[in-house]
């Protein structure tokens, strides 16, 4: 798994639960290192062990941990740079949803060896969408649930999300847009670059 993914998981634990919790998780997962490098590649098994250890430590189901990670990625101030990159996807939440098809390609433009799940948005009605996630790693759909929830807030949109599985092994998220301008949302200023902390 790409170091960026492992590093994101690490920062999620550190920023949300503290350094002590992170130490406990690495001990439980039997990791030799105490920190991941964002730009190195790691064995896939490490990531699985890590997620298992986090779920056990937090006493939460794995799926819920994954969704929390997705929310963290968009909403935590330490990852403002990532929120900004996602907001480049569109002016409105619906624009953003339509930009998701391009997300893996966009990510590869920035980091060539970063493999994100293939995403496919289908619109069924003006306010009804489904997002298909296909990945070697089952559970990315839960991460996307968290990402979508947090980004809906960011755009000020009110949405209902429902997780399910498609017949061909893909994960599916059903998205119902209740109101696109429900709340104020956060501003996005094209020129306001921030460094990745």
């Amino acid at each position: 798994m790409h170091g960026l993914v492992n590093r994101a998981i690490e920062r999620f634990v550190r920023d949300s639960y503290g350094t002590e919790a992170w130490r406990a998780v690495t001990r439980r997962a039997g990791l030799e290192m105490t920190s991941f490098e964002a730009m190195l590649a790691y064995d896939d098994k490490l990531t699985e062990d890590l997620l298992g250890a986090i779920a056990a430590h937090l006493e939460k189901p794995r799926d819920e941990v994954l969704e929390d990670i997705g929310t963290y990625l968009v909403s935590h101030p330490n990852l403002e740079a990532l929120r900004r990159l996602l907001r480049f996807g569109g002016v409105t939440f619906v624009d953003f949803l339509h930009s998701l098809d391009d997300l893996p390609g966009r990510a590869r433009l920035a980091v060539e060896d970063l493999e994100l799940p293939r995403l496919e948005l289908r619109d069924h009605a003006a306010n009804l969408f489904s997002l298909l996630c296909r990945s070697r790693y089952h559970g990315f759909g839960h991460v996307m649930m968290g990402v979508l929830r947090a980004l809906a807030d960011d755009y000020g949109a009110l949405v209902l999300l429902e997780y399910g599985a498609a017949s061909d092994g893909a994960e599916v998220i059903c998205i119902t847009l209740i109101e696109s301008a429900y709340a104020e949302g956060r501003t996005f200023d094209l020129g306001g670059r921030t460094a990745l902390g």
Binding site: L4, A38, M39, A81, F88, A107, L109, A110, V111
Partner: peptide
């Protein structure tokens, strides 16, 4: 333009991460 701005930010972030790795 939007793609270019996106790319500049994404590359700067990736470069910064690489720079930190190099330092370490």
């Amino acid at each position: 333009t939007i793609e270019m701005l996106y790319l500049v930010e994404a590359k700067s972030a990736a470069m910064e991460a690489s720079r930190k790795l190099n330092q370490r």
